[in-house]
């Protein structure tokens, strides 16, 4: 098997095709490792891999947030702009639980999830449910109002000074190849959490009764109601799951990028929303793929092109993708009926 790639990219292929033609990869890798004259190239290799890992890890956080966006969009057909701020609330709750109350990491994450779930359901019941039958712009503006509200409540409670979030991942990082490649524990936990959530959510929507109800409601609310599905409970459940995921994402995000302030959630929120659209909004695997791709593109453009322009590059890629595939990577194409 032969790859039409430069040697410095072999490691990438190696990581990508775990179950593919592995031996060739390994051989090249050993070669690179062994040759003394190629230490510089090897360094490039290692930065490449560590960038890739960072990208996947950041992308996993985006994917978890994007799942919340995509589920809510799929079922309620609304852009929930307050989702980014639920992330921030989750991070603050776990911060307080672990630094002031001395909770263990797992317990503080659980507390954050519970608080965010209650918050998400409450927001849906008070702000979005009365507007369910009115235009989508009205709900959008209300969501923005909720977002301002959450940010300002957080500002009043916790102040505007950034808090240094102490990582909740307690075990150390892994160093490979004599310390040339360091994989932080945070990124391992993030990626594993993302995979578990993804698999769990897919199984839930495919197999469980509530999941089936969710899909039915997202297809046709009125028909689902006629079939005896409680639409209100189903939508509440969607918001509950989305918000609980947001809490997890908040903790993971702040473990990797440890500054916490009331506006922490807004930019990752927008990017995750972009990721959801990127993968095709409404599709769960799409959110996952979109999130991870977005994370990788962001980290790579940060380290190889320009830090200041990385956001512009991310959005430019999004535009190109949408122009080629107007409903996102995995989005369904809806044919219009006249």
């Amino acid at each position: 098997m032969r790859f039409p790639v430069k040697r410095s990219e072999n490691a990438f292929i190696c990581l990508k095709n775990r179950d593919g033609p592995n031996e060739n990869c390994k051989m090249t890798f050993v070669c690179t490792n062994g040759a003394k004259s190629e230490t510089v190239k090897e360094g490039v290799n290692m930065t490449f891999i560590s960038n890739l890992i960072n990208g996947i890890s950041l992308g996993s956080v985006y994917a978890i947030i994007a799942l919340g966006y995509t589920m809510v969009y799929g079922i309620a057909k609304m852009l929930n702009f307050a989702h980014g701020d639920v992330i921030m609330v989750g991070a603050y709750i776990s911060y307080c639980a672990s630094s002031y109350l001395g909770f263990s990491p797992v317990l503080s994450v659980l507390l954050a999830m519970v608080v965010c779930t209650v918050l998400g359901v409450a927001i849906e019941a008070f702000a979005y449910r009365p507007l369910r039958r009115s235009g989508s712009l009205a709900v959008l503006i209300t969501a923005i109002g909720v977002s301002y509200l959450l940010q300002n409540v957080a500002l009043l409670i916790w102040g505007s000074n950034p808090k240094a979030f102490k990582s909740l991942v307690t075990f150390g990082s892994i160093s490979l190849f004599d310390g040339k490649l360091i994989i932080t524990a945070e990124s391992i936990v993030t990626v594993i959490a993302c995979i578990i959530i993804m698999v769990g959510l897919s199984l839930f929507t495919k197999k469980s009764k509530m999941g089936k109800a969710m899909r039915a409601v997202s297809e046709d609310k009125d028909a689902a109601e006629l079939m005896g599905i409680n639409v209100n409970v189903t939508i509440s459940l969607t918001f509950a799951i989305g918000s609980a995921l947001a809490a997890i994402a908040g903790v993971l995000l702040c473990s990797a990028y440890p500054t916490l302030q009331p506006t922490t959630g807004s930019m990752p929120g927008i990017k995750a929303f972009t990721a959801a659209v990127f993968g095709g909004i409404g599709s769960i695997p799409g959110a996952m793929i979109g999130g991870i791709l977005l994370g990788i593109i962001e980290i790579f453009s940060k380290s190889y092109i320009s830090t200041a322009l990385s956001d512009a590059i991310v959005f430019a890629v999004l535009i190109v993708v949408l122009l080629v595939k107007p409903t996102g990577l995995l989005g369904k194409k809806i044919t219009e009926k006249v």
Binding site: Y73, V277, A312, L323, G328
Partner: peptide, 25 residues
């Protein structure tokens, strides 16, 4: 103009962010 609905909205958002980023540099 080729896009519709929320996809159009997200692309205008993306353009807004790109303009901000470029002028910033």
């Amino acid at each position: 103009i080729r896009l519709k609905g929320d996809y159009l909205a997200i692309v205008t958002l993306a353009f807004g962010e790109i303009i901000k980023n470029i002028i910033n540099c």
